[in-house]
Amino acid sequence: MTDAIYKTLDRAYMVNWLERLLDCPSPSGYCMQITEMLRAEAERLGYASETTPKGNVIVTVKGQKEGPSIGLTAHVDTLGAMVRSIKSGGTLRMTPIGGYAMQTVEGEYCRVHTRDGRVYEGTVLSTKPSVHVHSDAREWKRDEENMEIRLDEDVRSKEDAAALGIAPGDFISWDPRTRIYPNGWIKSRHLDDKAAVAALFGVLEWFKRTGGTPLRTLRLVFSTYEEVGHGAAWVPTDIEEMIAVDMGALGDDLSGTERDVSICAKDSSGPYDYGMTTRLVALAKREGIGHAVDIYPHYGSDATAALRGGANIRAALIGPGVHASHGMERTHADAIVGTATLLTAYVTDRP
């Protein structure tokens, strides 16, 4: 990669900021703490932000030229769950937030966040959790009605759990189990999409430290409902081009890897803008960024939500490659820095 951008981005800043983001619970609809983190960090870097009525954070970076803005979006909300009901024995039935396979959370540690601010820990289990007890434990279908949360409290009845302040509608977050290694590998839940958030802040930090300015005004939109389909359904009307920055899907006939920047040409909503995608590919080649152009048949993004919401924009989709999405995910710091490099090239080098 060229020294001009890649080697001047602060890799350690992005990785350290990612670790902080991963440590903050933020299932869709429960993003109050993490959006405060975003606003505080943007302010520390010298950038103003605003919060939309539904909780999205928008950071604006003034450009050199007048005219339409470029939007960069990433989502801070994650998969999670909500208490559906308290069962007679004091365990909790849950309802999922986001689209994941139930077996990917079996055995996971979790936190229950009550409406009055208390937090309790627990474990997600099937209702037949032991092969020593249940002859059909292995075959027992892992779906919502056959899963429950065992609380790490002295509860033996519905009344015991209710006495803790737990009630239907309380949010449940998963333990991210983050591991960051010196060789650059990063494994954790919720790299979708906090790895992309880290890349966007890497761009902001680069502008602040170098004194650089984008050619056109940037609107960085950090959404809070992407996992449930309407994260960036509304975007500022001055945005003409929008790049959704989200995790790159890997596997099957896809050519990307965890060290690459994925450039999505088409997902479940249809093809992305031809001109934007072509320019992103050209810039990735010019900058020497490891990248892959792929098709995601089972995928939607914040750009999808914006277009379906009626936004009159051109849109593209890129992001760091993430293996085992919506499960025990893994990426590499190279992909995060590569994503920040490509974005920086795009917003500073428009013809």
Rank of each mutant, 00 (worst) to 15 (best):
E153Q: 04
R156I: 15
R156A: 15
S157D: 03
K158M: 09
K158C: 07
A163R: 03
A163W: 02
I166K: 04
A167P: 15
P168A: 01
G169W: 00
G169K: 00
D170N: 11
D170Q: 07
S173Q: 01
W174L: 06
W174F: 10
D175K: 05
P176S: 14
R177H: 14
R179W: 06
R179H: 06
I180N: 14
I180L: 07
I180S: 10
P182F: 02
N183E: 12
N183D: 11
W185L: 15
K187E: 11
S188N: 12
R189E: 15
R189I: 15
H190W: 02
H190G: 13
D192L: 11
D192H: 04
D193Q: 05
A195K: 07
V197L: 03
A198N: 09
A199D: 09
F201D: 02
G202M: 06
G202T: 07
V203H: 01
V203D: 08
E205G: 09
E205R: 12
W206I: 14
F207H: 08
F207G: 07
F207M: 07
K208Y: 13
K208T: 15
T210H: 04
G211L: 08
G211Y: 05
G212Q: 10
T213L: 05
P214W: 05
L215F: 02
T217W: 05
L218I: 08
L218W: 07
L218T: 11
V221L: 11
F222I: 13
T224E: 12
E226M: 03
E227W: 00
